[in-house]
Design a protein around this nucleic acid. Sequence first.
RNA 1: GCGGAUGUGGCGUAAUGGCAGCCGCGCCAGACUUAGGAUCUGGUGCCGUAAGGCGUGGGGGUUCGAGUCCCUUCAUCCGCACCA
Length: 1015
Amino acid sequence: MTSINRAMFFVSSRTNKIQKRIVKMEYDFREVEKKWQAYWAANKTYKTEDNSSKPKYFVLDMFPYPSGAGLHVGHPLGYIASDIFARYKRLKGFNVLHPMGYDSFGLPAEQYAIQTGQHPRITTENNIARYREQLDKIGFSFDWDREVRTSDPQYYKWTQWIFIQLFNSWYNKKSNKAEKIETLIAEFEKAGNGSINAACELTETFSSSDWNAFSEKDRSDVLLNYRLAFLSNTMVNWCPQLGTVLANEEVKEGVSERGGYPVERKLMKQWSLRITAYADRLLTDLDALDWTESIKEAQRNWIGKSEGTSLKFKIQESSIKNQDLTDTCIEVFTTRPDTIFGVSFVTLAPEHELVEKLTTPEQKKAVDEYITFAKNRSERERMADVKKITGVFTGAYVIHPFTGKQVPIWIGDYVLAGYGTGAVMAVPAHDSRDYAFADYFGINKLVIIQPSVDWDFADKSYDEKEGKLINSDFLNGLEVKAAIKKIIAVIEERGLGKGKTNFRLRDAIFGRQRYWGEPIPVYYENGIPKVVSENELPLLLPEVDKYLPTETGEPPLARAKDWKYKGEFEYEYSTMPGWAGSSWYFLRYMDAHNDKTFASKKAIDYWQNVDLYIGGAEHATGHLLYIRFWTKFLNDLGLIPVAEPAKKLINQGMIQGVSSFAYKLALSIHSSSATAGEELDPHLIPPIIISKSLHEKLWDKSISTDELVALDEFLLNITQIVKKQSSGKLGEVKYFSVSPSYPIHVDVNFVQNNILDKDEFKIFKNGEFKDALFYDNGNENYICGSEVEKMSKSKWNVVSPDKIVEEQGADCLRLYEMFLGPLEQSKPWSTSGISGVSNFIRKLWRLYHNGDELNISNEPATRPELKTLHKTIKKIAQDIENFSFNTSVSSFMICVNELTEFKCNKREVLEPLAILMAPYAPHIAEELWNKLGNTESITYATFPICNEDYLVESSFNYPISFNGKTRFFQEYDRSLSKEDVEKEVLNLDQTQKYLEGKAPKKVIVVHNKIVNIVI
RNA sequence: GCGGAUGUGGCGUAAUGGCAGCCGCGCCAGACUUAGGAUCUGGUGCCGUAAGGCGUGGGGGUUCGAGUCCCUUCAUCCGCACCA
């Protein structure tokens, strides 16, 4: 058959099938789903009222960033789960708030704007329209009247308003909450800052008369040290390619999470939020949350509380060359003060302020060189060779506070300037990092803890907090824990230092040198930062000619023409980070259109906080920490009644994409789909496999036309196989990914006859050539490797739900995504099992129909039919409450299989079944419900109640086991007592057979469960 | 290195300490069919003709009984990481 014939045959057989389907009146999901989606929209079926006598329930999804790639199959996973739960709660009589919106400020729209000149607002609106269309097709029960968009001025007005509240607040450690800045100023005017205990970096004290004598600028500078939103010089992660600073969690392995560009450390004047003030509360309040342990643990790690001691080492007189050196001590932070007698040196971070002043003339050259080296060593390099030990001796010494011996001062970049005091006391024998450093530079190691096990100190340090102290003067003989207690007491008594808690958590840098974000509502008057007044909000994002930094390196907002506060003062040019808008959005849903306040007190008092929050685990230390921080802050100001945003959190697993190594060729991108001279982002070029020889030729551009053609043919061959097996359409898609279930078998003759060298392949991926994962499968065929990874536009492995909705229906997609496995588990996307679900839906439909006619009887149901129904009611309710949606789908299948077998068409059974199905498959459920004669939507029906009476059988079929192995079954009445069961069982012939004449040692009868006979 | 999770048929998975593998995919056989990406019936953990034996990553333990609890070990995935 020629390909044309084949195609014609295909077309005609398909037409036949469609005709037959119409004749047979199979379930027409297309028409039914369209009909009910229109009905729900027209009737505002899912509109939520704020006034209700029903108990409230708030089900929230993490709202998406509307990316240009559209919704992929991973997005709906969590949305379907939350939708099932929301629908279930409605059926259970709750007033459910189930909204959706868009986190619509962000980098990709801006990147796209830079490339195309298209305003990010336009791109974003287009993407949102696409998302909305896709979401609507899946039949979610969102109340769209409450939609929020973080980039909408009516929304970001309140994001800016909250920023102003942060600016106008300080953190009082005495009351342990945020307070208005006015209370602080009043205290300053009255008594200075001497008795204030605030979250603050300022160490100097001043009196009320000092304060009153300060200039306006001085006061502003002082207050910035207290404000929760503040401007300061901070070491930031600067990404030159993106032209902006990034938060720590936006940096992965030294490169930007988005785009993978290098990131360097840079000192910049930046807006930050004082999240560290909340460190302790963010940590302790975790305990009461019903969140997964892994998220809570990730947050605990991120906050990184560590309790220890600060300790001062006096600098040796002769080492103080500088007369103006006021501080004659080096302060270190340690969690192991018990090891003080094992100190053999002190290490400073290269950035430590005392470095320059301490260095002796003899060491100056070496130290300067080292500092230059450390400074130029990028974050990435530093991370890449953590094991590489670098450092230098300053030539100076401190005096050991207890032994009085001199201790050398070293500099090493294993000590971080930003943590603790930027200086450590090194105890090589009992700290592995100090050990490595000492080993490398030949510094002596003093063992001061005797481990209870054999330990070779020539090999490694002993870091455990266990053992007896030795060589430690007054600590000798003590166990580590007792020693810590004692030494802290002594240190405090002698004024050498005190107990101290350190956090790993850093203040959150809040400025981005970017266009597409909320403008920070700040202007500068004579260099003093001031917030715009609240009634002038929103401070609108101004129009600019280009979305790039200015020639002088200022952020894009500096390009805005005539953009001045009151026509004269410069605005702040940086915008807020992506996480700003998402840090309070759950509150806006409660009262989405309020223009007087971010949400009315009445609405907030009613809805409180989120009862169930569903979203990805990737937000563990970013979004979820910030939203908790803002919630606590708003709570401190008395604006909201709760201190946590979400009571329960479920993390849906990631649906991964399968990225294959075989893709359509890069050469064709250059030749056909990329315009001449266009600079392609290397991260957006899909991986390409080429032979090693071709790689070399490409490299020196010596490839011949023939070879190019041959290469193209090879790729064509691959794509044709793909076409045959996964029905990809050649020609419509520029870049080909290969379905994981169909590894490509490339004929070995073909390979040998063409330009590919056996075994030697190179892969071009993420801008680099790497060795490819080709291997011989034993038949001398090659199979392409594939990789399961995050589904993402940049990885070319995005699968959209549209095709499934189009071909199998929304209910099918919903059931199938739930059927894939436990919600929280990550899994690669595969449609291999979808026909089972599709068949199930048709089978469900047939249960209510005879041919094309609705076939429902009002006769009373039989007991077996009722048993099937009621066990399903019980199971579904349990499953939903346990978020075990996958097992529900299987229960539905069992239920429908059983009812089909009974040929059950009783209204008494089928009507409740439709309600059970409604959360999972709302379209078909609504249609069946309607056909059964109901005129109201199924949405507000009542969830059926399980009647346990139908589940109880009069007898029980006991498994009879011998030594734990089941051998046969015997049925007894359920009321038969344990003793009688034992008697009956022992009298059975079969029992005697297995006893082989021996007397049983023991007989265990678990009533209505099992019998176990021990021989 | 620290922390979190996961290991069960060919595959996705299921099992309040009580019959391991429900449900589905795939596969095998059959029925109805011009046809099948439709529907229906039966089968399908592994070894064995069978009787029977073996089976939840490996090794130990608790228990009348362990996929489930405890100890230990291995593998994979994720998060954090010179945090003193």
